[in-house]
């Protein structure tokens, strides 16, 4: 009896310690990145760092604007493609399609979501980059193909399974009686979708989009492989960009050899961390709130 109690204590202790450890991860990440960013924050003010557009680590100039804007542009392009496609497809799968198509689609979504970022990158290099070159040729522009648009398209394809999955769940969670109520007063399917389902699922749909955007913001390898990585403020879809994650990933090798460079890159990671946690947190809150509402 006594031994059983001791074992129980030990195991419970291990469990609690594990939980404590896990809960410390976000705090540790935040704190670690802040500490690492302090050296550069001491020298350059926040507005200078975020708003400056000159990036010359060797002469101590660290302006993050090109990277932040590139990130925003690539994410925006991907969202403009993935958002409507996902919403339409989620509507089709849950409202119009046969159950067989939906159950066929589920593994397709799972597989697409599971394919590693780097494989999407290979596909982007082999398929999307040549495609974008063609597209530019139509408008009589000669380009390398490694540009914002390529990055945005690859990113869109990557976010589709992720967003679609959440959207399907959101729409399926809407009580079927709402649909019945709308149909029974003589609304067509489309009217029911437009006036009732989209409204009832509004917060969930917004949350799905928010999660998709925050995932796109942090995506690294696939984008890095097709986006061009030139430090500039891109002026068109066919110009190369240099998103934040790509900046961090590309320069880890040199960052220890140039003063303040490591601090600057860790500051970049901190920006990403803060923005994504905020986005994610808000989206999750919206989803949880939606569930409670029902």
């Amino acid at each position: 009896m006594h031994r059983r109690k001791i074992i129980d204590r030990l195991i419970s202790g291990w469990m609690a310690a594990g939980l404590f450890f896990v809960l410390m991860i976000p705090l540790a990440i935040g704190l670690g990145l802040v500490l690492k960013s302090l050296p550069i924050l001491k020298i350059l003010a926040l507005p200078e760092l975020l708003g400056g557009s000159i990036w010359k680590p060797l002469s101590g100039q660290f302006g993050f604007k090109p990277f932040i804007l590139s990130s925003v542009y690539v994410t925006l392009i991907s969202f403009l493609i993935a958002g409507p496609v996902c919403l339409l497809s989620a509507i089709y799968l849950t409202q119009y399609a046969s159950r067989r198509l939906l159950s066929l689609m589920q593994p397709v979504i799972d597989i697409l979501a599971g394919i590693p970022s780097v494989v999407y990158g290979v596909w982007g290099v082999l398929v999307i980059v040549p495609f974008v070159i063609r597209l530019a040729e139509l408008r009589e522009v000669a380009i390398s193909g490694y540009c914002l648009l390529s990055g945005g398209i690859v990113l869109a394809v990557m976010s589709i399974p992720f967003i679609l999955n959440i959207l399907i769940e959101v729409i399926q969670a809407i009580p079927i009686e709402l649909k019945e109520a709308s149909l029974s007063v003589g609304a067509s399917y489309w009217e029911t979708i437009k006036w009732v389902l989209l409204r009832a699922g509004f917060s969930g749909i917004m949350a799905a989009f928010g999660l998709g955007i925050s995932k796109a913001l942090g995506e690294t390898i696939a984008v890095l492989m097709v986006v061009g990585n030139v430090v500039q403020i891109p002026q068109s879809l066919f110009e190369a960009g240099y998103p934040l994650p790509a900046l961090i990933a590309n320069n880890y090798g040199e960052m220890m050899s140039i003063p303040l460079y490591d601090s600057a890159l860790m500051f970049g990671a901190l920006i990403l961390f803060v923005i994504i946690v905020l986005f994610n947190g808000l989206a999750r809150l919206a989803i949880n709130h939606g569930e409670r509402y029902r």
Partner: peptide
């Protein structure tokens, strides 16, 4: 609820941030 919320948010943190943090660690 709070623990689940935190874990969900952690799930969304991009791997490059983990990489940078892992490097620091």
């Amino acid at each position: 609820n709070r623990i689940r919320f935190l874990l969900d948010v952690l799930w969304g943190v991009p791997s490059i941030v983990y990489g940078a943090f892992g490097f620091t660690l």
